[in-house]
Amino acid sequence: MADVQLENGYTKIANEILEQMAKIKLSPTQYRLIFVIWRFTYGFKRKEHEMSLSFLSDATGIDKRNVQRELKSLQERKIIFQDIKSGSYRKISFNKNYDEWVGKITIGKTTVGEITNGETNNTGIGETNNGAIGEIDNTTIGETDNQEIKNKENLKEKSKEKDDQMDQPNPITEYEKFFGFPPPILIQDFNYWIDKSQFQEPEAIICEVIKRAKLHNPKFPAKYINSALKTLHDLELYTLSSVREYNAKFDAKFKKQPNVITFKEMSKRPKGVSEPPPLTDEELQELEEIEAKLPF
């Protein structure tokens, strides 16, 4: 049985947004994408998040081509915004201004495409809101009004916005770059370090640890990274500068010891050199666990 607790993390969504989402027609794939977008934006107290097609495909189980197509549709309907730099990044944000959403067209008192269990809301066939047939709220079909032009301009402006808060390093994206999509338990750990630790720059520090972990390529990267973060926190290294200074001292110490090698390298037999048999799987596992307790 799943043990779901708010203490393990939650995503704050305004009730008004949920009410409006219930009124707009989306495909199942689009709903799933929005859930992931909410999780990795509002779930991290952010307005936007860098999400690749691979990231979204892994998070939803949907083919990347379908993900790309549905994202384009959501953007065209102004439900999300995308800031894309080819070959570099894709930043996505949810448009909470539901007045800008495209998809609900009202003719008189009846909303096109909505089923009302047989009710017609007292609107006759072809009847409109005090206008001639073909008119929609005093706007002729095909006519582009000033508001529509403004909406397009707003879309362009918002897609180009660079929120300083969003420029922070992203632990999820950083981990995905080196080790694949992070397991749920690691995401919970990240939330803890971001929300409840004394780290002053938690996202940047987590990304720094992830980069360092890649250098060692541990067998259990999630466990290794969380252990390193705990060590740094216990040492009261709460800023990125203090963490980097610690890393520099650590590196300098081992540069003076050229013969220092990792446990994995110790277990390998050099060519042409007669050595005892390689370590057993149990011995390697024990050494890996010892190595995982090291800060880096």
Score class of each variant (00 low, 15 high):
residue 106 T to V: 12
residue 15 N to I: 00
residue 99 D to R: 04
residue 63 D to W: 08
residue 82 Q to V: 07
residue 185 I to C: 01
residue 169 P to T: 00
residue 119 E to I: 00
residue 232 L to W: 05
residue 68 Q to R: 10
residue 203 E to C: 08
residue 295 P to A: 00
residue 123 T to P: 04
residue 43 G to D: 03
residue 70 E to V: 00
residue 177 K to H: 12
residue 126 G to D: 06
residue 291 E to H: 07
residue 224 Y to E: 04
residue 145 D to C: 03
residue 191 N to F: 07
residue 211 K to M: 12
residue 226 N to S: 15
residue 122 N to L: 09
residue 15 N to V: 02
residue 268 K to H: 13
residue 47 K to G: 14
residue 110 T to P: 02
residue 249 K to C: 11
residue 212 R to V: 07
residue 85 K to Y: 15
residue 131 G to M: 08
residue 133 I to C: 06
residue 250 F to V: 00
residue 295 P to K: 01
residue 296 F to I: 00
residue 129 N to D: 14
residue 295 P to G: 02
residue 77 R to T: 03
residue 146 N to A: 14
residue 72 K to Q: 11
residue 272 G to A: 04
residue 296 F to Y: 15
residue 151 N to C: 07
residue 244 R to E: 15
residue 234 D to K: 13
residue 104 K to E: 15
residue 6 L to W: 10
residue 86 S to R: 08
residue 230 K to L: 09
residue 93 S to T: 01
residue 76 E to M: 06
residue 287 L to F: 15
residue 196 K to A: 15
residue 25 K to E: 13
residue 184 P to E: 06
residue 137 D to Q: 14
residue 232 L to E: 04
residue 49 H to V: 05
residue 158 K to P: 03
residue 93 S to L: 04
residue 215 L to W: 15
residue 79 I to T: 02
residue 45 K to E: 15
residue 144 T to N: 10
residue 165 Q to K: 08
residue 194 I to W: 09
residue 150 K to H: 11
residue 286 E to N: 05
residue 196 K to M: 11
residue 164 D to R: 00
residue 92 I to V: 10
residue 72 K to P: 02
residue 14 A to P: 05
residue 240 L to P: 06
residue 81 F to D: 03
residue 168 Q to M: 10
residue 192 Y to K: 02
residue 5 Q to K: 12
residue 121 N to A: 09
residue 30 Q to T: 00
residue 106 T to Q: 15
residue 118 G to Q: 04
residue 87 G to M: 05
residue 23 K to C: 09
residue 44 F to I: 01
residue 162 K to S: 12
residue 255 K to G: 05
residue 179 F to N: 00
residue 230 K to H: 11
residue 296 F to M: 07
residue 8 N to C: 09
residue 115 I to G: 09
residue 73 S to W: 06
residue 84 I to V: 14
residue 84 I to F: 12
residue 272 G to H: 02
residue 119 E to D: 10
residue 106 T to K: 15
residue 271 K to R: 10
residue 223 K to N: 10
residue 193 W to N: 01
residue 169 P to W: 09
residue 78 K to S: 11
residue 58 D to G: 01
residue 202 P to C: 11
residue 142 G to E: 07
residue 46 R to S: 14
residue 114 E to D: 09
residue 62 I to Y: 06
residue 196 K to P: 05
residue 285 Q to N: 08
residue 228 A to P: 00
residue 171 P to S: 04
residue 159 S to L: 04
residue 6 L to K: 08
residue 148 E to V: 01
residue 145 D to W: 02
residue 152 K to F: 11
residue 125 I to R: 12
residue 28 P to C: 04
residue 58 D to Q: 07
residue 29 T to A: 09
residue 17 I to E: 07
residue 70 E to R: 06
residue 94 F to W: 05
residue 205 I to P: 01
residue 141 I to A: 12
residue 63 D to Q: 13
residue 114 E to I: 02
residue 186 L to S: 00
residue 265 E to F: 04
residue 219 K to W: 12
residue 144 T to C: 08
residue 294 L to F: 15
residue 229 L to M: 05
residue 290 I to L: 15
residue 136 I to G: 03
residue 227 S to P: 02
residue 65 R to A: 06
residue 142 G to H: 06
residue 269 R to W: 14
residue 159 S to W: 08
residue 194 I to F: 13
residue 78 K to N: 14
residue 68 Q to D: 11
residue 108 G to Y: 06
residue 32 R to G: 09
residue 31 Y to G: 03
residue 204 A to I: 00
residue 140 T to Q: 13
residue 162 K to L: 12
